[in-house]
Design a protein around this nucleic acid. Structure first.
Length: 271
DNA sequence: ATCCGATGTCAAT
DNA sequence: TTGACCTCGGATC
């Protein structure tokens, strides 16, 4: 689930269900019990996301810092709360709703200062307000780097919130070879990529899934068999290895890059 | 019943 | 570059 759009959506959903009221905070699994006891009964005052990091603000200056990692999951539900299972790291509950967090890489109580340190080490996030966000800072790093653009897009210090799906899809949409060095990306190309990510990821927050296929390229529009993608979104290349490209019909390729699966169409994304 | 992979990241090598 | 961590659903036996 978790690329930046998921986390921004969670910030909105946690906020909508729990801000402004006393919240019951527990850690059925036990790994967050001490902090949960400190916060239990206090008010969730605000929620925020930066890249893949989620911040739940309690009272004036207490924050729960959550990072889902690869496996973390969040489940919302209506009251009454069901008995928790033993993997629930954090449960919030009030009279009307509950929400469970399982399997996160991080769930920790932090201060304002610690939170600021996290913002400081993250790059610009296409989903944060423009006044907080400088895509030029990302381009400065990219244009000085011999690292591949595929790796740079996954580097959260360069740009925050892009994961394996948006990386593959945005490079496809711009016809860019994932192995191209960052320094060979033109300002116009970066501009187009950034603008596209803003649009795609906002749509992702709205729909809570990743869709990247333009209407004119859907299988129906192209007269091809309907898609069989199994990850809840309509995409060009992600997890479509050895299947036909929606545009040219050639085979989508896959390769290992920095321990992740990369997907691209060698014909549409030429060096 | 068991295995494997996954939209992530870090530390150790 | 590899291993560790966190969880669970789908594929495979």
């Amino acid at each position: 689930m978790p690329e930046g759009h998921t986390i921004h959506r969670l910030a909105l959903d946690y906020g909508a269900h729990f801000t402004g009221r006393a919240t019951q905070v527990t850690s059925p699994q036990g790994k967050f019990s001490d902090a949960a006891e400190l916060l239990n009964g206090s008010e969730l005052t605000r929620t925020e996301a930066h890249g893949k990091h989620l911040f739940l603000g309690f009272r004036d200056a207490d924050w729960i810092h959550i990072h889902l990692g690869l496996f973390g999951k969040v489940t919302f539900g209506p009251a009454p709360v069901p008995p928790p299972t033993d993997t629930v790291r954090l449960r919030l509950a009030n009279d009307t709703s509950y929400v469970d967090l399982r399997g996160p890489t991080t769930c920790a109580l932090i201060t304002d200062t610690e939170k600021q340190a996290i913002h400081d080490r993250l790059g610009p996030d296409p989903l944060r307000p423009p006044q907080d966000t400088d895509p030029g800072a990302a381009y400065r790093r990219i244009s000085r780097s011999r690292t591949t653009i595929a790796a740079l897009l996954m580097d959260q210090k360069v740009i925050a919130g892009v994961g394996n799906v948006y990386r593959a899809e945005v490079l496809f949409r711009h016809g860019i070879d994932p192995y191209r060095a960052g320094k060979d990306l033109t300002p116009a190309e970066w501009d187009a990529i950034w603008t596209d990510l803003v649009g795609l990821m906002r749509e992702g927050v709205r729909t809570n899934r990743i869709d990247t296929v333009r209407p004119e390229h859907t299988p129906e529009a192209m007269g091809r068999p309907p898609r069989v993608d199994d990850h809840g979104g309509e995409v060009y290349v992600y997890r479509r290895a050895n299947r036909p490209c929606h545009i040219c019909g050639g085979e989508i390729r896959t390769a290992d890059l920095a321990a992740r699966n990369l997907f691209w169409c060698p014909n549409c994304q030429k060096p």
